[in-house]
Measured scan of single mutants.
Amino acid sequence: GSMEQGFLPKGWEVRHAPNGRPFFIDHNTKTTTWEDPRLKIPA
């Protein structure tokens, strides 16, 4: 929902695949990933 959306880094969006699995869109680089960007520790 909109709650989890608010925690994503700037430029990211979460969508759900037809099977219900969430995936993440990085509008900054125009890419998608199954990995939650929030789980990655910034270098």
Rank of each mutant, 00 (worst) to 15 (best):
H16Y: 15
E4N: 12
I41C: 15
R21P: 04
T32I: 15
Q5Y: 13
K40M: 14
G6H: 11
F23T: 04
A17C: 15
P37K: 01
K10P: 13
P42G: 11
W34Q: 03
T29C: 12
T32D: 02
F23E: 05
H16F: 15
E35H: 14
P42I: 11
L39Q: 12
G6Q: 10
P18F: 08
K10Y: 11
P9M: 06
P22C: 14
S2K: 11
P37D: 02
Q5G: 13
H16M: 15
K40V: 11
G6V: 11
E13I: 04
N28P: 03
K40Q: 14
W34T: 05
D36S: 03
H16R: 15
P42A: 13
E35Q: 13
A17T: 13
P42N: 12
R15T: 05
P37E: 02
I25L: 06
T31N: 06
I25T: 04
K40R: 10
P9K: 05
L8D: 00
G20D: 04
R38P: 01
N19I: 03
P22Y: 08
N28R: 05
P18N: 08
F7H: 14
G11V: 00
T33R: 04
N19K: 01
T29F: 04
G11R: 01
N28L: 08
P22R: 10
W12Q: 01
H27D: 04
N19G: 08
G6M: 12
S2I: 12
H27V: 08
M3F: 14
G20S: 05
Q5R: 10
P18L: 09
V14L: 11
A43V: 12
E4H: 14
I41F: 13
T31C: 13
P18T: 08
G11Q: 02
G20Y: 01
S2V: 12
P22L: 13
I41Q: 13
M3K: 14
S2Q: 14
E35R: 13
T31D: 04
T32V: 15
R15V: 08
Q5T: 13
V14I: 15
I41R: 11
V14H: 06
T33Q: 08
M3H: 10
E13G: 01
G20Q: 04
G11A: 00
E4I: 15
E4T: 13
P9G: 04
T33P: 00
T29Y: 04
T29S: 08
E35V: 12
F7E: 15
A43M: 13
D36K: 03
H27R: 04
G1W: 09
R15M: 07
E13K: 01
K40T: 12
H16W: 15
M3T: 10
F24N: 01
Q5M: 15
K30S: 10
G11I: 01
T32P: 02
R38S: 04
F24R: 00
R21W: 07
R21G: 04
F24H: 00
I41K: 10
E13L: 03
I25F: 10
H27F: 07
A17Y: 06
E13P: 00
L39K: 12
D26V: 02
P22K: 10
D36F: 04
K30H: 15
K40G: 11
K30N: 15
G11F: 04
K30T: 06
K30W: 07
T32K: 10
I41V: 14
N19A: 01
F7Q: 15
N28Y: 07
M3E: 09
N28H: 06
F24P: 02
T29E: 05
L39T: 12
N19R: 00
G20A: 00
A43P: 12
Q5L: 15
H16E: 07
E13H: 01
P22S: 07
N28I: 08
F24E: 02
H27Y: 08
H16S: 08
N28Q: 06
T31K: 08
V14D: 00
E35N: 10
A43N: 11
W34G: 00
G11D: 00
P37A: 00
F7A: 15
E4M: 14
V14Y: 04
L39W: 10
E13A: 02
L8V: 04
E4K: 11
N19E: 03
T32S: 09
N28S: 06
P42M: 10
R21F: 07
W12S: 02
P9Y: 05
L8W: 04
E13S: 05
T32A: 10
W34S: 04
P42F: 10
W12R: 02
N28F: 07
L39A: 11
K10N: 09
T32N: 05
R38N: 04
L8M: 09
W34F: 08
R38D: 03
N19M: 01
T32Y: 15
A17H: 08
T29P: 00
E4R: 11
V14G: 02
K10V: 10
D36V: 02
K10W: 10
P22N: 06
K40P: 13
V14C: 15
R15F: 07
P42D: 10
I25A: 03
T29I: 03
Q5S: 10
H27Q: 06
M3Y: 12
V14T: 05
R38W: 05
W34L: 05
I41W: 13
K10A: 15
F7M: 14
R38F: 04
L39V: 10
G6P: 09
S2T: 13
T31R: 09
H27W: 14
T31V: 08
H27E: 05
P18Q: 09
A43T: 10
D26C: 09
F24K: 02
E35K: 11
D26I: 01
I41P: 14
G6F: 11
F23N: 02
T32Q: 10
F23Y: 15
L8R: 03
W34A: 02
N28V: 08
M3D: 13
G11W: 03
G6A: 10
I25M: 06
N19C: 14
G1M: 13
F7V: 14
I25R: 00
T29K: 06
R38A: 03
P37Q: 02
G20V: 01
P18H: 08
P42T: 11
S2F: 13
E35G: 06
I41A: 13
H16N: 08
K40I: 13
P42Y: 11
I25S: 02
R21L: 07
T31I: 08
A17D: 13
K40F: 14
A17M: 13
G6D: 10
P18M: 09
P9N: 05
F24W: 10
F23M: 07
F7Y: 11
P37G: 00
K30M: 09
G1A: 13
G20W: 00
N19P: 02
F7G: 15
E4A: 14
L8K: 01
P42V: 13
N19V: 01
W12D: 01
W12H: 02
G20F: 02
E13C: 06
E4F: 14
L8I: 05
R21K: 10
Q5F: 14
W34N: 03
D36H: 06
W34R: 02
P22H: 15
K30R: 09
E13V: 05
A17E: 07
P9A: 05
F23D: 02
S2Y: 13
D36W: 04
L8G: 03
T29G: 07
P42H: 10
A43L: 12
L39F: 09
K40W: 14
R15N: 04
P37F: 03
A43H: 10
R21T: 09
Q5D: 11
G6E: 09
K40Y: 14
E4Y: 12
T29W: 03
S2W: 13
H27I: 07
L8C: 09
P9S: 05
Q5C: 15
K40C: 15
K10C: 15
A17S: 09
M3V: 12
W34V: 01
R38K: 00
G20L: 03
F23G: 01
L8E: 00
M3I: 13
T32F: 14
E4P: 14
G1Y: 11
E13Q: 05
L8Y: 04
R38T: 05
H27T: 08
H16D: 06
K40S: 14
T33G: 01
Q5V: 12
P42R: 09
W34E: 03
H16T: 14
A43K: 11
R15I: 07
T31A: 06
F24T: 01
R21Q: 09
G6S: 11
P9D: 02
I25D: 03
E13Y: 06
R15G: 07
K40A: 15
G1N: 11
T29D: 04
K10R: 11
P18I: 08
G1E: 12
H16K: 09
K40E: 09
Q5I: 14
M3S: 11
E35Y: 14
M3P: 13
W12T: 01
G1S: 12
H16P: 04
D36P: 07
V14Q: 09
L8A: 03
E35T: 10
P18G: 08
Q5H: 13
L39D: 09
Q5P: 11
P37T: 00
G11K: 02
F24G: 01
M3C: 14
F7S: 15
T31W: 07
G1T: 12
K10E: 11
W12K: 01
G1H: 10
G20M: 03
M3L: 13
F23A: 00
P37N: 00
N28A: 07
H16A: 08
G1F: 12
